[in-house]
Design a protein around this nucleic acid. Structure first.
Lengths: 150, 150
DNA sequence: AGCCTCAAGTTCCCTAAAGGAACCCAAATT
DNA sequence: AATTTGGGTTCCTTTAGGGAACTTGAGGCT
């Protein structure tokens, strides 16, 4: 299909979607995050078509989210998160938290997160980077920023 | 195209994508969040095809993320966030924060967020819901949960 | 009464993207 | 020489997105 280009919009949400908004991309990042770093591993884990996986990996590398690293004399590589990609994992953790709460059902969450600092199984919570108080949908006002459209 | 159904996977990220992972869905939620609640408003703001907008709105209502409310005797409605949908805005704020940092470029972020509690323009930060310390990609161990696949 | 408008969809056609299976290639192994 | 293995490419089919035109149901206007 002919898909609209979100990258041109004056909206950081749209621009972020331009990087990881295509089907499979967040799941590919999740796999790399948990240590499935090779083409065959990701393909087998997700059941994604090889063609689409190639396209997605190239796009994520182009966007600076993943880095391609050779691990052998032969043309073999692993994919690793860059700093830019590592910070995207925040997004995955929030998605997982929402899914755990609203979609897990009877069985409960498929994965638990143990926080190194306190050793407890826990989840993420959004706080204001300035004052540390909770910061959710109704706790903010939106103002036009310097990059707002004319 | 024939798209894989993420909703069946034992992964809260995949399940969340099944709800809001289709193109446009996060942008539709953003519009509703900022007060563009009617079909024509959203269509004009995003430039999305009417057909696709209809499909997305129906899906989001089916999933319990949006609620359709009549606002006139005539068949007119507004869309509003449910509690389930309001909590998805966390995801939008994290997406916006990442886009502001990595994609805004010279012009700076298009939108600023002022936190009611402290009155400052700020952004979100992820904290452990248990101990309140920062919680990012490298601060957690993943463990199988009760809903893990067999 | 007859006509117009307006929000909110619905229908149709066209194009492009996802799925899937088969094929390719270079280096190492047997 | 033949096979295996990782990491893709090619080709074909199906289906979803874009866009424009059409529909519907309730008011309003004259």
């Amino acid at each position: 299909m002919q898909r609209t280009n979100f990258g041109e919009m004056a909206c950081s949400i749209a621009r972020t979607l331009d990087v990881i908004g295509e089907p499979w991309s967040p799941l590919i990042l999740r796999d790399v995050w948990v240590g499935l770093t090779r083409f065959e591993q990701i393909q087998a884990d997700l059941g994604i078509s090889r063609k689409v996986l190639t396209e997605r990996l190239n796009h994520l590398v182009d966007q600076g989210v993943l880095e391609r690293r050779p691990y052998d004399q032969r043309p073999r590589h692993e994919y690793h998160l860059t700093q830019k990609g590592t910070e995207l994992v925040d997004l995955l953790m929030v998605m997982a938290g929402w899914g755990d709460k609203w979609l897990a059902g009877e069985a409960g969450p498929p994965v638990l997160y143990r926080h190194h600092a306190c050793g407890e199984v826990s989840g993420v919570d959004l706080r204001c980077a300035h004052c540390g108080e909770p910061m959710h949908a109704s706790d903010v006002d939106l103002l036009p920023g310097p990059g707002a459209a004319a």
